[in-house]
Design a binder for these strands. Sequence first.
DNA 1: AGTCTCACG
DNA 2: ACGTACGTGAGACTC
Length: 890
Amino acid sequence: MEKLVLIDGNSIANRAFYALPPLTLASGQHTHAVYGFTTMLLKVLEEERPTHLLVAFDAGKVTFRHARFEAYKGKRHKTPNELSEQFPLIKDVLDAFGIRYHEQEGFEADDIIGTVSAWAEARGLATRIVTGDKDLLQLVSPYVTVALTRKGISETERYDEAAIRQKYGLTPAQLVDLKGLMGDASDNIPGVPGVGEKTALKLLAQFGSVEEVVRRVDEISGPKLREAIAAHREQALVSKELAVIRRDVPLPFELEDLRYDGFALEPVREVFRRLEFKSLLDRLPHVPGARAPGETSTGAEEGDAAPTPLDVAVAGTAEDAALERLLAAPAAVVVELDGDNYHEAALLGIGVYSDAGALFVPAARVEEWEALRAFLADPTREKWVYDGKRGEVALRWRGLSLEGIAFDVLIASYLLNPTESRHALSDLAPRAGLSLAPDEEVYGKGAKRRALAAGELAAHVCRKAQAIYRLKPLLEREVEEAEMNGLFYDLELPLSRILAAMEHAGFRVDTARLKEMGEEFERRLEELTAEIYRLAGTPFNINSPKQLGEILFDKLGLPPLKKTKTGYSTSADVLEKLQDAHEIVPKILYYRTLGKLKSTYVDGLLKEVNPRTGKIHTIFNQALTATGRLSSAEPNLQNIPIRLEEGRRIRQAFVPSEPGWKLLAADYSQIELRVLAHLSQDEALVDAFHRDMDIHTRTAMDVFGVPEDAVTPLMRRQAKAVNFGIIYGISDYGLSQNLGIPRKEAAAFIERYFDVFRGVKRYMEDVVEEARRKGYVTTLLGRRRFLPDIHSPNYNLRSFAERTARNTPIQGTAADIIKLAMVNLARRLKEEGLRSRLILQVHDELVFEVPEDELAVMRELVPAVMERAVRLSVPLKVDVHVGDTWYDAK
DNA sequence: AGTCTCACG
DNA sequence: ACGTACGTGAGACTC
């Protein structure tokens, strides 16, 4: 099928420029916008397979829109030189690919795209527009869809008419009416003052278009709005006109001139070499449409680089001895399982790929083939894996071991960019020039999940192993270049083995105790329900925010203090403010508390108890958080209640797995503030920790200028909130919300804090500056987080990036420290021959189960190792508690 | 699938 | 004039 792709050159280049960390040649020439543009282009060629292709650029500064409205784009910042100097290079790349591009005096890229897409529509040619600019959404039609880049440039969101209707409740054509009414600050289009998105959408729902709004202005409800519209009719109409994309630009070519039938490899290679796009060079031969030297053009349809067939040997019989040569090291190993949760998941088979070839061992053969088991268990035979913990745990359940894991592609990819959400092997494979179908596609998901035919399974699993094998050297190099060898090989990789052991060990649960609690909660919930219905005068679903909102705010007439997108907010902070307004409110709050405990922590946890082991086996995600923390799922054991006594009792159900053993919990005291003291070298903060003072009291003393015995509980509470705020990258608004005080007072607190803690202030400024300069921030052990939005012209995005720049080094360093402690502790436990087991990590806390006779040793060893994990300018402090249940280890 | 709410550090 | 605390996972409801 034929397909036209129209690329908005300026928009994509701009996105790439601001989204990617700077990249320069020896000459100082910046290339990251070119790089970003080129990766987008390759993606388009791979995924869209266009038969017609055009890249449109903006021409000079003045367009017909300026003639109509002088101030058009008046507030826009000048394009930085670092970007404008990259446009000629982008055109070099396009020339090498033989792709047509066009710019036209007096018009913007939008108008060129509008015109060509109109031609395509007339001919019934499917069209995809690729841009970062929402304005182009107005062109969407049954033939035209828009792929909008979001968050960086690699991800796109596709819009057809239904998607636009769903998101805005408007037709594509009405989007210009929306802009006419609300204006657009980035283009300096005024709209109608006082009309924002909400009002504009309301008006359009009623009237349909700007013209109708203006014509029937008398029908507008609300005198203020009516006056505003009446006073700015002309401005609204002009604003709309400016927003409309032209579809009749006289262009010097026609649709058929845009036909695209692939490219010759060599010229593209040459340009890539000149621009030092090494990683893209490898990918090139597999891009659809690529022609080797001498090959003639065959038309875009046949330019596909079909996946190279893989020769897979399948083990199965006593003859397998002949296949032993395929158990060579180093090898990529894939333990293929049925399902996402790998605890006791069915094994489908094991794939092995090395220089010796590809081998697939079906599940039935795994346990009986001695040579394979020995190979897997041999720590001296190097294995490369993707999410090694997954396979390792699955094999542990079968009494098999997987040792010698020397590289993990998932963890490497995560460390290289922890905010990237797509670390699936199928996402990474193209980097090594391979195309790999996602598991979801191969197996189907949900109800459509299916078993594969034997040959299909072997091929897919070995293809994955091949991708791992090819990706390893690429990622290995990138990890090295990012100076993360220590972090990767000495921290995350060993940690992965420890997490595997923790997950497999599990946490024993006293299900009888949990059920008792559930029954108690149930009784009290029934009582509460009856009282709530009585007070409301009618039964309703208390769990439905919608129904609850109607009862509270419509029926009972309480003041709605906050709204959400869809209606009234009934969140706890709103209800707390209404506690005294009606006796139903505290009952609802209590109902919520108990309901949460019952559904999530009693029923939810009971569902997760493994009937065979009587334990809960969580899965730690080691490649997810943006800061380097772990997360825990199925179930989440990192959010078991503790703050309120009623919930805290859930912890009475968490017990040791062997009779006579105890639980030992060790937590870092104020680790994030200690890390802040170290990173900032703030005198007062460092001093406070050297004296081992109560940090919130000390903060109150300094901020309020009073002696210790004059610090009231309120002052301490406020100082504590400020301390948290500092860690989170503080804003006066955030602090005011947290403390329930006016924003001005919050601002005054912050100012006083920074007056005293000068070093902290300085550090916060420096770290944001560093983020701007390098494009990323780092933790103590060199973990990185990229912050492309730090340069965004959008205030919200930029502010968020700045807060993140302040928070991530703190939260991330704390994560580094406890991970290091875990690795060191595991080694010590082994060296000392202790039977104690680490079973849980909760960000600043480690939980062990300990035999009685090891208690004394563990009470000493655990805090000692944790406190010495790193050496900071302030001491680290660890509190240790022992008990018969997790509740009692306090 | 998306939204709201709420549990944890 | 704007809208925001940082990082997570899960259950219930709604469409």
